[in-house]
């Protein structure tokens, strides 16, 4: 299993991998917001956490379609499915998700504090947003894996995956953003939405790979 993780990380770093695509997209989205909203620093600081979360969410969705499609195109997916008796397919999917997260989503989380400065956010708000992104983005990858598995056989599946996955990620977005706000706005709680966010991630870490494995199992042709 470690070898699969190492292989996917290596692929995401090497030429043609998508490690940087997401970060550049994230940067582009966040950098254009201040121009669109105008130089109202208070307003920027207020919408900052939400914009960071939305940008990260969209950047996450960007690379998801390649999660299984690349393996399908070169025939690796058949062999991963056939390995089910030795390496449970759901576990294989989980490892692929973790590698995808570490390879293409973790850079977003690392870039988020820097982009928070663009939004004139306070240090506490930046820290809280980065923390919620760190805890919440794996959930997006896990949901996305199920979508990617369903759409793996479609030649232009990327859009379909986004449409399938986006509604399911709304709870993650809501709790992520409200926990980020909770850290700065005084009456709002931080811990409760943050714990629900963590619970969502853990829950989806099971549900996502299992349903993705089911879809892949029946999707071979």
């Amino acid at each position: 299993m470690w070898s699969l993780f190492a292989r996917d990380i290596r692929l995401s770093i090497r030429a043609g991998g998508g490690a940087l695509t997401g970060v550049i997209f994230f940067l582009a989205v966040i950098a254009t917001i201040p121009f669109g909203v105008g130089p109202d620093l208070k307003l920027l600081a207020r919408i900052g956490p939400a914009i960071l979360w939305i940008g990260a969410l969209l950047a996450c969705l960007l690379g998801l379609d390649r999660l299984f499609q690349a393996d399908r195109e070169d025939g690796s997916l058949d062999l991963l499915v056939l390995g089910n008796d030795r390496q449970m397919l759901a576990l294989t999917v989980l490892v692929k998700c973790l590698a995808h997260w570490a390879g293409s989503v973790l850079p977003l989380v690392i870039a988020a504090p820097l982009l928070g400065l663009f939004m004139n956010m306070e240090p506490v708000a930046i820290g809280a947003t980065a923390l919620t992104l760190l805890v919440g983005t794996p959930a997006i990858t896990f949901i996305g894996a199920a979508g990617a598995a369903v759409a793996v056989a479609l030649p232009r599946g990327g859009l379909l995956i986004s449409v399938l996955v986006l509604p399911l990620t709304i709870p993650v977005l809501i709790f992520g953003v409200s926990a980020s706000y909770g850290a700065t706005a005084d009456p709002d709680p931080f811990l409760q939405p943050f714990l629900i966010l963590a619970a969502l991630t853990l829950f989806l870490a099971v549900l996502g790979p299992v349903s993705a494995a089911l879809a892949l199992r029946h999707g071979t042709d």
Binding site: R7, R10, A15, D74, G75, D78, L82
Partner: peptide, 18 residues
């Protein structure tokens, strides 16, 4: 059978970047 077999299909199941 899945556990006992090697399947060599039309595609080579190898990554060009590695």
């Amino acid at each position: 059978i899945a556990a006992a077999c090697h399947y060599l299909g039309h595609q080579n199941a190898m990554k060009p970047a590695l």
